[in-house]
């Protein structure tokens, strides 16, 4: 891993922690943007320039703008004062630990002999990368590509249907929370 790789990794980790531990969702969102940009940097370090740019365009340019939009529209304050308690964070840390503890040894066992940087250093020089990815997507993966476009279309339609105001609003159940409309 190069120097830049370490820099981006550190940023990504710090920002990831920021996402989880910021009380204000808007700060979480900004942290996530930083994290996503750091990931784009990591892709770049790994030689996937096209993906790096796509990452910026799709995640930073579209998805996170949408999230910010929603956050600003709803104008939410920090999470309500209710205390987290002690059990939940502990259990959550247990989750995190167990994910890492179960997967990492298996992966390490799988890959410890293989050195990454010795492999195919100049695989995607210049614009060969974009061209090669294009040929993969429009060649072997054409069906999946078309399907994913269909998924996007359905997503758009679904989002519109969901956020359209309906004439009949099914209110919260009796005794449920947030009774006022």
């Amino acid at each position: 891993m190069t120097f830049m790789g370490f820099v981006f990794s550190a940023i990504a980790l710090a920002a990831a922690l920021g996402v989880v531990f910021n009380r204000n969702p808007l700060y979480s969102a900004f942290s996530l943007i930083v994290q996503l940009l750091a990931m784009a940097g990591l892709y770049s370090v790994l030689g996937a320039h096209f993906l790096a740019v796509t990452q910026v365009v799709v995640y930073a340019g579209a998805i996170m703008v949408l999230v910010l939009f929603v956050l600003m529209l709803l104008n939410l304050k920090s999470e309500s004062g209710r205390k987290l308690g002690i059990v939940k964070p502990l259990v959550a840390l247990g989750v995190g630990f167990s994910v890492v503890a179960t997967v990492f040894p298996a992966v390490v066992a799988q890959f410890k002999d293989i050195s990454l940087m010795t492999l195919q250093e100049n695989l995607w020089k210049s614009e060969g990368g974009v061209k090669a990815i294009g040929q993969e997507i429009y060649g072997r993966y054409i069906v999946q590509f078309e399907l994913s476009s269909l998924v996007l279309l359905i997503g758009i339609v679904g989002a519109i249907m969901l956020s359209k105001r309906k004439r009949i609003v099914i209110g919260p159940r009796e005794g449920g929370l947030g009774g006022k409309q």
């Binding site: 959550a92 989750v95 167990s98 994910v99 503890a101 179960t102 997967v103």
Partner: peptide, 20 residues
């Protein structure tokens, strides 16, 4: 939701450890 997610992660981790 958080309860469900917790359970799901534990189950996934357990499954992964078993199968690996």
């Amino acid at each position: 939701v958080t309860t469900y997610v917790l359970l799901m992660f534990f189950a996934a981790a357990a499954l992964f450890s078993v199968f690996s």
